[in-house]
Design a protein around this nucleic acid. Sequence first.
DNA 1: GTGGTCTAGACCACT
DNA 2: GTGGTCTAGACCACC
Lengths: 132, 132, 132, 132
Amino acid sequence: MLHFQLDPRSAVPVYRQLMDQVQYYVASGALKPGHRLPSIRKASRELHVNPTTIVKAYSELEHAGVLVRRHGKGVFVAEQVSPLGESETRTALRERARSLAVHAVQLGADRELVLRIVGEELEALQGKQGEE
Amino acid sequence: MLHFQLDPRSAVPVYRQLMDQVQYYVASGALKPGHRLPSIRKASRELHVNPTTIVKAYSELEHAGVLVRRHGKGVFVAEQVSPLGESETRTALRERARSLAVHAVQLGADRELVLRIVGEELEALQGKQGEE
Amino acid sequence: MLHFQLDPRSAVPVYRQLMDQVQYYVASGALKPGHRLPSIRKASRELHVNPTTIVKAYSELEHAGVLVRRHGKGVFVAEQVSPLGESETRTALRERARSLAVHAVQLGADRELVLRIVGEELEALQGKQGEE
Amino acid sequence: MLHFQLDPRSAVPVYRQLMDQVQYYVASGALKPGHRLPSIRKASRELHVNPTTIVKAYSELEHAGVLVRRHGKGVFVAEQVSPLGESETRTALRERARSLAVHAVQLGADRELVLRIVGEELEALQGKQGEE
DNA sequence: GTGGTCTAGACCACT
DNA sequence: GTGGTCTAGACCACC
């Protein structure tokens, strides 16, 4: 059973919080391709959020290629993720890495600390890949 | 000479982009305590940005203790940039590292590639710290 | 043997895709008046589609005068497929042609390329009309 | 001055009708890169449609790379359209051409008629390119 | 002024 | 049951 935690007071929009958490579950393997997500109405009730907010999060994730919505059936994790080319993958990755590096330097973190934390987060995700 | 790159199409507000880049220059050592920043009028002209947007960025940075405004003289980098606590640093860093990890996994990048790219970006920044 | 290709992820309803493809077969001559279509149960099994979806498609096509259901015997192609009026044909065609033109221009395709590709697709279809 | 015509009784969603018309104006050159579109509130008032419906149309067009929304400034036609590769352009075009061809055959239109109408629609668009 | 987000609730279409 | 669309109206953030 999935669990989502939303903070309506956060500066991050609720639909964005939901998106991030779904993407995390998908990346960690807790949500595998073909798996069904909570229906819009059910998620709306359980998270105390308006249905249209759930719709927005699910729609954006469909645009991003993470989810697929099937009318009358439900919302599912997409089968294939990221058909990006090699160079595009690196470019996208480098952009995010640069952002992380900038903030790390601003925070005064040294190289070893940054690499250790990134390594830990990667392991936390990949360690879950095999689980059901 | 400082160079700022602003993208008005980004979801990130322009004033926030300016703030981030000033902080980047400060963190990287390109802007040292006591250095003078471009005047509001000059920055407005050169960056093709509304003066009120520059004012907002400088004000927020002053509030954060990064800049100091001296009436009639201009805007300067503060002498003391208040550092964050140890645990706050790690929490902020870990959040950003997790976001990078999630996207890296979805892009199909392996651990070595991610760590290599992050390391490269860190070095690129630290190389700039030595420069004047 | 007829072959149908359905995409449950499409924005176009499954029953509509089925209808279109039956009409395509009829229009191309692969399905001639009097030919029998797959039973609802058989089509449901082979296409991995809910029987009620097949029922809806067949019903709509019967209403449109394309199919005829004979109790206990099956579903057949109607003897007379009611043709549309001249102006209705052109209006419908022009609407679709306009949509194609808009997207072609935005894709940067020139006139010759567009006409050549449309011509090729028309020939591919008309080639099938001659076959049995 | 642009004019949009919406039919709330149509089976085509209102936001889709708006999208189609904006795309038509862009393809015809009536809306050029950098041009500003009616604000959400203004369009809402003039078209007697809820603001969120306009938002949805504009958002989808931003996803499609046709428009750019700038917080606090307005909605504009995007500078560069379709950075698709050669082969992807042809594939996308061929898909739409096939759909047109299928319907043309179903409607009983012959090759000459189809090519003539497509040619006319292309000319109608390209004839407007130079106009202001 | 502008766009961005969210709510409460309605009605329709698909499976 | 499911998702898709639309309304009326609110509050916030950006320029």
